[in-house]
Simulated scan of single mutants.
Amino acid sequence: MKKTGFTCVKSVMTILLTSALIYLTICYPDVYQDTFKSCVTMVVTFYFSHQLSKRGEENDKTGN
């Protein structure tokens, strides 16, 4: 798969935002712990659902 500019930006933003949330969670655990859990849950859910939809499309194209 060829990386486009948008894909690269999306990956960089995901890494930066995750790093910022980790930093805030370490520095202020009482305040950001629930926020970190919610954000990680949303990101993981998005990536897994995206991968499942890609697999479904690939299977439809190959006829499996």
Results as ranks from 00 to 15, higher is better:
Asp60Leu: 06
Leu24Asp: 01
Thr7Phe: 11
Tyr47Cys: 07
Gly56Cys: 06
Lys37Asp: 11
Ala20Tyr: 07
Thr7Ser: 15
Phe36Glu: 01
Asn59Asp: 08
Phe6Ile: 10
Leu52Trp: 06
Ser53Cys: 05
Tyr28Cys: 04
Phe46Val: 02
Lys3Asp: 05
Leu16Glu: 09
Ile22Val: 12
Pro29Phe: 09
Ser53Val: 04
Val9Phe: 11
Val43Met: 11
Phe6Ser: 15
Lys37Tyr: 13
Cys8Tyr: 14
Asp60Phe: 06
Asp34Asn: 11
Gln51Thr: 08
Thr41Leu: 12
Thr25His: 07
Gln51Phe: 13
Met42Lys: 14
Ala20Gly: 12
Gly5Asn: 13
Met13Pro: 00
Thr45Ala: 13
Val31Thr: 14
Thr41Arg: 12
Thr4Pro: 00
Ala20Thr: 08
Glu58Gln: 08
Gln33Tyr: 12
Gly63Ser: 09
Met42Leu: 10
Ile22Tyr: 05
Lys37Arg: 11
Cys27Pro: 01
Thr41Glu: 14
Lys54Glu: 09
Thr62Asn: 10
Ser53Arg: 10
Val9Gln: 13
Val43Glu: 02
Cys8Glu: 15
Gln33Phe: 11
Val31Ser: 06
Val43Cys: 03
Ser53Asn: 07
Gly63Lys: 01
Thr45His: 04
Val12Leu: 15
Thr18Cys: 12
Val43Phe: 03
Phe36Gln: 00
Tyr28Ile: 00
Glu57Gly: 04
Leu17Phe: 14
Cys8Ser: 15
Gly63Glu: 06
Thr14Glu: 11
Gln33Lys: 08
Leu17Ile: 12
Thr62Ser: 07
Ser53Glu: 10
Met1Cys: 09
Met42Ile: 10
Val40Cys: 13
Lys37Leu: 08
Thr4Ile: 01
Met42Pro: 00
Leu24His: 02
Asn64Arg: 06
Leu17Met: 15
Gln51Tyr: 11
Leu17Gly: 15
Thr4Lys: 00
Thr35Glu: 08
Gln51Ser: 10
Gln51Pro: 00
Gly63Val: 07
Asp34Met: 08
Tyr47Phe: 14
Phe46Asp: 06
Glu57Ala: 14
Asp34Val: 06
Val43Pro: 00
Asn59Gln: 10
Ile15Phe: 13
Lys3Asn: 12
Arg55Gln: 08
Thr41Tyr: 13
Val12Cys: 08
Phe36His: 01
Tyr23Asp: 03
Val44Ser: 11
Thr35Asp: 14
Val40Gln: 03
Leu52Tyr: 03
Asn64Ile: 06
